[in-house]
Design a protein around this nucleic acid. Structure first.
Lengths: 161, 161
DNA sequence: ATAGGTGCAAAAGATTTGCAACTGG
DNA sequence: CCAGTTGCAAATCTTTTGCACCTAT
């Protein structure tokens, strides 16, 4: 009937972006991804990053999360089906969670309500073990992990640099 | 220990805002709420609306939803517990849904993962019956439902005016 | 009296768009 | 060749902030 994925030409920028995003095992914002790619030597415009991400989103090959107000984070989706994640509010790391239950629940709601084309957004956030201050004794620093994640949000170890 | 709801002084603007929001049975953006209040004769600054909504959010008396990129919608929360909604993408009307299942699921994830202070965001969107084009025959008008949810994409009859 | 609230104008950010030049199939 | 891409600058849009002036308690 229609083209879920109209075109998408494998240009130099587009390919590099997909690779950078796939290498990144976490959510990352368009701006950060652009910065990272630029750092790594890829010449690409911020506008292009936005447009490419938008297309990938339309093609359902990335998962999207909202960061605070008006900032969207993208994460490459290896497998076919969409996933939901548990994101650490302190260090930004994310891990996929089993969401069968929610999927079914959403399906039931859809059926019972009579609504069509029901879509859902589910986001879990918390403070991961590594970022939890040990209540009584000496509290560890912020994030006892890879030395390069210092951004409260986006900024993952496996990501690029 | 701390004050979840530090202050909140019942000023003219604040009170009017709460009333307007409570009267509105649907999600509404800060800008729209401001516009509506202004239309209705309440003199209030947009800044104040933003600040009041932020405080209400902190006080957990409103539910928040994300609209597209970087626009937040607020909905007055009558009962105590938070709720999740099914929102029509065509007309914007929203109806709370039973989310026990999801609450439990979220709790389990929290426990199993070891993450602390786990919070969740769940949003369901679809096309309500009234907005569904009747495939073959004559298509009904926009949205013929229960008299209390009729907001056409933020702009409800029941809301204020 | 005074801590908190208000509002205007300006600032901040993130994302989108106009447009002319470019490129992969 | 030609539809799709790119990138820069400018434009949009929503939300936040600086600051001086009000106002409940």
């Amino acid at each position: 009937m229609s083209d879920p994925t109209p075109k998408q030409r494998p240009t130099r920028q587009r390919s590099a972006l997909v690779e950078a995003l796939a290498n990144c095992q976490d959510f990352i914002s368009a701006q950060d991804l652009h910065a990272r790619m630029t750092e790594d030597g890829t010449r690409i415009g911020l506008t292009t990053v936005y447009r490419a991400l938008r297309d990938l989103e339309a093609a359902d090959t990335v998962d999207v999360a909202q960061a605070g107000a008006g900032e969207r984070l993208y994460r490459w989706r290896p497998a076919g089906r969409h996933r939901h994640y548990l994101i650490c509010r302190a260090c930004g790391s994310s891990r996929p969670v089993d969401s069968e239950v929610v999927e079914e629940w959403a399906g039931r709601i859809a059926a019972d309500s009579g609504f069509a084309a029901v879509e859902h957004t589910v986001e879990l956030t918390g403070v991961c073990i590594g970022c939890q201050p040990t209540t009584g004794e000496g509290k560890l620093p912020s994030c006892p992990w890879s030395p390069d994640w210092e951004t409260p949000r986006h900024r993952a170890p496996g990501c690029g640099s």
